[in-house]
């Protein structure tokens, strides 16, 4: 459904560190996403997990290699925290996010009350996002993301923040979403989540694929390099 073929990505850093200013994020990564599966991507901070999702979503282009996507299929990246405009209210941000993900103004408006209720933001939904705590941001981000309907759902750490009660509620909502035939690529730090939710997993290490296959085996490989 979606494949990365020998994909590398590097960019010139503003600071002249690394390789004469070139920062190599991914180096020859190949992986495939099959229809209806939930693929987990794990790895330590900075190994290129989020960049991989951005390549899959078409936000970034690889420096070399190919990203192949079946024609007509849409992929959308769900992240939290980033992407909100701090000067706008939670309501406006939710509306904008829905519209940018393809909803018409009417559809986007119809989502808003549901988003307000699920996110438990109450009157804060009308307040500017810059007054939100990180937990509130997480709740708004997750709930807005939950409303998206796309062929491939790319999820970046959306279940890792917020308070414990909301995290459980969010995990349950996400599980019911991915239990159907939804194709999902899921990035997480939390090993238990990857074991619970994913059919298959990939471990990235130093910009390359370290292990790929059954989540339990891949988590074992991750355990060794993260020690």
């Amino acid at each position: 459904m979606l494949a990365l073929e020998n994909v590398s990505l590097s960019y010139q850093s503003r600071r002249k560190s690394f390789d004469h200013g070139a920062h190599h994020v991914l180096d020859g990564v190949s992986l495939e996403v099959y229809e209806g599966e939930t693929l987990g991507i794990i790895g330590r901070n900075g190994v290129g997990k989020s960049t991989t999702l951005r390549l899959m979503a078409g936000i970034l282009a690889p420096t070399s290699g190919k990203v192949r996507q079946r024609p007509g299929k849409t992929a959308s990246l769900l992240t939290i925290g980033l992407g909100f405009r701090p000067d706008l209210s939670g309501r406006d941000n939710a509306m904008l996010a829905a519209m940018l993900q393809g909803a018409s103004p009417k559809q986007a408006r119809s989502y808003l009350e549901e988003i307000k209720e699920f996110s438990e933001l109450g009157d804060s939904f009308e307040e500017r996002v810059k007054t939100y705590s990180s937990g509130m941001l997480a709740r708004l981000g997750f709930t807005t993301a939950l409303k998206t309907h796309v062929d491939i759902l790319l999820i970046d750490e959306v279940l890792s923040v917020g308070d414990a009660r909301f995290r459980e509620k969010a995990a349950a909502a996400m599980k019911s979403r991915i239990s159907g035939d939804q194709t999902v690529v899921f990035v997480s730090h939390m090993e238990a989540q990857v074991r619970d939710i994913c059919n298959r997993a990939v471990c990235l290490h130093e910009g390359a694929v370290l292990a790929e296959g059954d989540p339990v085996e891949v988590l074992a490989a991750y355990g060794e390099v993260s020690r």
Binding site: G58, F84, L100
Partner: peptide, 11 residues
């Protein structure tokens, strides 16, 4: 100024 949004959506 909109890099947060740009990192999330291919627009």
């Amino acid at each position: 100024a909109n890099k947060g949004l740009i990192g999330r959506i291919n627009v």
